[in-house]
Design a protein around this nucleic acid. Sequence first.
DNA 1: GTAATTTGACCATT
DNA 2: AATGGTCAAATTAC
Length: 309
Amino acid sequence: MGEGAVREVAQVYERIKIQHPLLLHYSSSHHHQPTTQLAHNLLSDALRALNLALSVMKQHPAAAAGSVTPRIVQAAEPQISPPSPASADPQAIVTSTARSGKRRRSSVMLEGKKSSWVNFTTVPYEDGYEWRKYGEKKINGTSYTRSYFRCTYKDDTGCLATKHVQQKDCNSDPPMFQVTYNNGHTCKNFTTTTAANNNSGSSNNLALIGCCNSSEGVTKISSRNNGHAGAAMNNIKQEQPPVLLPPILEISALPFDGKPPSMTSSCISGESWDEYSAGDMAQIAEASAGDDLLYDPELFVLCTSFKVY
DNA sequence: GTAATTTGACCATT
DNA sequence: AATGGTCAAATTAC
């Protein structure tokens, strides 16, 4: 049951991988109607399959993924979970905030229902929320420093959402980042209300996936970043197209009744895919052709983005 | 002056 | 002792 779903995800995923760059190229340069339609069809297939597969995984996580996500989060294996504010657990919050000094990972916290999930993206700062950087650390075995962020409104609302961004060592262009979120937002802060408004207008390609390019500079770290480890990340930010998307969490609320919302290239692939060469794509497809699909970073992005919560 | 970022130090965990 | 996550003073930008 779970295997079938995963297989379907894999199949559709492969189709998109192989054809997406071409579709993007032609549809953008020629506005070719049939090609655009094909792209939409493919993406619709992906939505359908992923929704099916992930819903199954949700019900039978062990069967579907060979034990992918324990509820208790361990540092080395962050849980993949939808970034929904609803996932924030106030109970977990209490334990972590008691600051009679400096506190953090307590055994109580680990035993609680603290939510955590990861996302792989080329645009780690564009997730629909405002973040304030509070630390940076060189992590063993990595070439890049890890940056730590907390919700900008933590002081005002007590929101305990945090995330850390780790640039991956792979020499991809654009660079890939692993973003690990801890705790959902409880601040109800959506500075992207304008984004929502925009999307409600002319297009319904909303959404999907705040992973890629919701751009309104929600993460305010680059404006004053004067170098150091953030330099590379600033480069990423500058690549953002002026397209606004709602926070990633929004996708989880979308109904999925067989007619998924249409979406543009930005959703699954991110604008960055346009940059991939055919060789890159071949490599990616090749790399993902194995059995370990669930650990393919790009599939992670898909899963994180589409998962029905 | 205010707010955000940087960065070394601190602390819990392993 | 090593490591990772957070704090907070200093620095920087607006």
